[in-house]
Amino acid sequence: MDIDLIFKIAAIGIIVSILNQVLSRSGREEQATMTTLAGLVVVLMMIAQKISELFELVKTLFHF
């Protein structure tokens, strides 16, 4: 278990939330939304990789 992934996701989340607040305070609502979306997609990619790894692991373990 590599705990780095958890910290990475948390860091991306915090950075995205700060960027979101800064951008929305300066009146760029659509850019703030885009930033949130981009962060979400990046994390989703990482998670998708992890999920596929997990499925492969379960497949090999239970002889699917």
Partner: peptide, 8 residues
């Protein structure tokens, strides 16, 4: 992510 890691 945490669930995946714990199951792994």
């Amino acid at each position: 992510a945490v669930c995946c890691m714990v199951v792994a």
